[in-house]
Amino acid sequence: MDVDGVRTMTVGTIAWGVLAIALLPFLGTLEENGRTWWLWTAVAGFGLGCIGIEYCRRRRNALRMQPGRRRAGD
């Protein structure tokens, strides 16, 4: 099974983005209860996911440029 991780990273990043947007209407309540870290965790997950998507895309493209080379462990 050859999985490059792009789809997985994209789905996870979208989930974090949707969660961050869903928490925005509750920002006041989150601040009152000292739970603004929920929003910042979702924002961080989205940002790191964007970096992860780019990393996986570059890795996938690099592997495609070397079709005869196999990864370690295959």
Score class of each variant (00 low, 15 high):
56 C>Y: 03
65 M>F: 00
26 F>V: 14
40 W>I: 13
71 R>C: 09
70 R>L: 03
54 E>G: 08
49 G>E: 00
32 E>G: 04
27 L>S: 12
26 F>E: 07
40 W>F: 07
29 T>A: 12
10 T>S: 06
59 R>A: 02
2 D>P: 02
63 L>F: 00
13 T>A: 12
39 L>N: 09
72 A>D: 09
1 M>N: 14
21 I>L: 06
66 Q>Y: 04
22 A>D: 05
59 R>Y: 03
8 T>C: 01
35 R>N: 13
50 C>L: 08
42 A>Y: 10
38 W>Y: 05
67 P>D: 04
1 M>A: 12
16 W>I: 06
55 Y>S: 11
45 G>I: 13
34 G>L: 00
33 N>S: 07
58 R>P: 09
40 W>C: 15
70 R>Q: 09
11 V>D: 02
30 L>Q: 11
31 E>Q: 15
54 E>W: 01
38 W>L: 15
57 R>M: 14
56 C>F: 09
70 R>I: 00
33 N>E: 08
67 P>Y: 06
42 A>V: 13
50 C>A: 09
49 G>M: 09
8 T>D: 00
34 G>K: 11
35 R>V: 14
29 T>H: 07
36 T>A: 00
49 G>P: 00
74 D>R: 15
51 I>M: 13
7 R>Q: 12
35 R>D: 12
12 G>E: 06
23 L>S: 04
22 A>T: 15
38 W>Q: 11
57 R>Y: 03
59 R>M: 03
28 G>H: 06
6 V>C: 01
41 T>H: 00
3 V>K: 10
60 R>C: 05
18 V>S: 01
49 G>C: 03
58 R>W: 06
30 L>H: 04
74 D>C: 06
20 A>Y: 02
12 G>W: 02
8 T>Q: 01
27 L>R: 11
70 R>A: 06
42 A>D: 13
35 R>M: 10
14 I>W: 07
28 G>C: 06
59 R>W: 02
38 W>A: 14
27 L>A: 15
22 A>Y: 07
60 R>F: 01
47 G>C: 05
12 G>N: 07
49 G>S: 04
36 T>D: 05
61 N>Q: 10
29 T>V: 15
22 A>P: 10
56 C>W: 02
55 Y>E: 07
5 G>K: 10
49 G>K: 05
29 T>F: 15
21 I>W: 00
44 A>T: 15
45 G>E: 14
63 L>D: 03
4 D>Q: 05
57 R>N: 08
17 G>D: 03
3 V>A: 12
35 R>F: 08
55 Y>M: 14
41 T>P: 13
6 V>A: 02
60 R>T: 01
40 W>H: 12
10 T>V: 11
51 I>S: 05
49 G>T: 01
16 W>F: 11
4 D>T: 12
72 A>W: 11
60 R>D: 00
65 M>P: 08
61 N>R: 14
71 R>S: 02
23 L>N: 02
51 I>L: 14
